[in-house]
């Protein structure tokens, strides 16, 4: 049997000023779309940061597709740049000094000097991404002039162009209006399948869970309170009980 897509099992104490917060997260999934659900401040973003290597757990182990990213017992702590993890930040974190094209192409330019002269292969890949995300007309535009939906597309394209083995998304739809959310959910589903990249998505929107989750992980007050595979019956409910069933699963009353 192949290794699980994602195994997360770590603990860490976060401190900010006088307050301290114990985070203990443990879940594993064989599936491609994992949704972390929970109220604000529950530790969802910290979990994502730990997977990406931006936060160092005190103990535990994190592995993706059989690759060990972190293992406290064995002293393994891969640098973020070596983890091959794509990250879409909540505010997208687009580079404000670069235009759309250069934002998307950022990860293709490795090293300091090599790549100042973008090679033809890289140019082609960027063009393909611009096309795929319908950003061709905006290629030369500074990112601050983009709308929310366009920014998100740039962030996704920038993360996916380096072919990550795992894609992390921190509340990707929070900044979008309701109608756009629905469309972007659909796009994200398609992208996930097209790039065959497993994804972990944070949300506190039940609709995201319903539309995207294959595995649901509920995090509350620094603990995983539920971790389950969404079965087929829930994906296509017989009647209108779906919403309440989902709410019950997510621990929302």
């Amino acid at each position: 049997m192949s290794a699980p897509r994602l195994e997360v099992d770590f603990s860490v104490t976060l401190r900010s000023g006088q307050r301290s917060f114990a985070l203990q997260v443990r879940f594993a999934s064989e599936q491609n779309r994992i949704v972390l659900f929970g109220p604000s401040g529950a530790g969802k973003t910290a979990t994502l940061r730990a997977i990406a290597g931006l936060l160092r757990p005190a103990q535990g182990r994190i592995a993706s597709g059989g690759r060990v990213l972190f293992d406290a017992a064995r002293g393994i702590d891969l640098a973020p740049r070596l983890r091959r993890v794509g990250y879409v930040f909540q505010d997208y974190a687009l580079f404000p000094h670069l235009n759309v094209r250069d934002n998307i192409g950022y990860g293709l330019r490795r090293g300091l000097l090599r790549g100042w002269f973008a090679d033809a292969a890289a140019r082609k890949r960027i063009d393909a991404m611009l096309d795929l995300f319908d950003l061709g007309a905006l290629a030369a535009m500074p990112t601050r002039e983009l709308s929310g939906g366009q920014r998100q597309r740039v962030a996704l394209a920038r993360a996916l162009i380096v072919e990550p083995t795992l894609l992390l998304l921190d509340e990707p739809f929070a900044a979008l209006d309701v109608r756009l959310r629905d469309r972007m959910r659909e796009e994200l589903r398609e992208l996930q399948m097209r790039f065959a990249v497993p994804l972990v998505l944070i949300t506190h929107d039940l609709l995201d869970v319903q539309k995207l989750a294959e595995t649901l992980v509920v995090i509350e007050m620094g603990q995983v309170t539920r971790s389950l595979s969404m079965d087929a019956s829930l994906q296509s409910p017989p009647d209108g009980s779906m919403a309440s069933e989902l709410a019950r699963l997510c621990g929302v009353s």
Binding site: A52, L54, A79, P80, R81, R83, F95, Y106, G107, L112
Partner: peptide, 20 residues
């Protein structure tokens, strides 16, 4: 988070400094 974004896209510390 811009510097972290650069790291996650494969940049080493010198590249993060010079490019971001």
């Amino acid at each position: 988070s811009l510097e972290n974004a650069a790291r996650l896209l494969g940049s080493g510390e010198a590249a993060v400094f010079l490019r971001v």
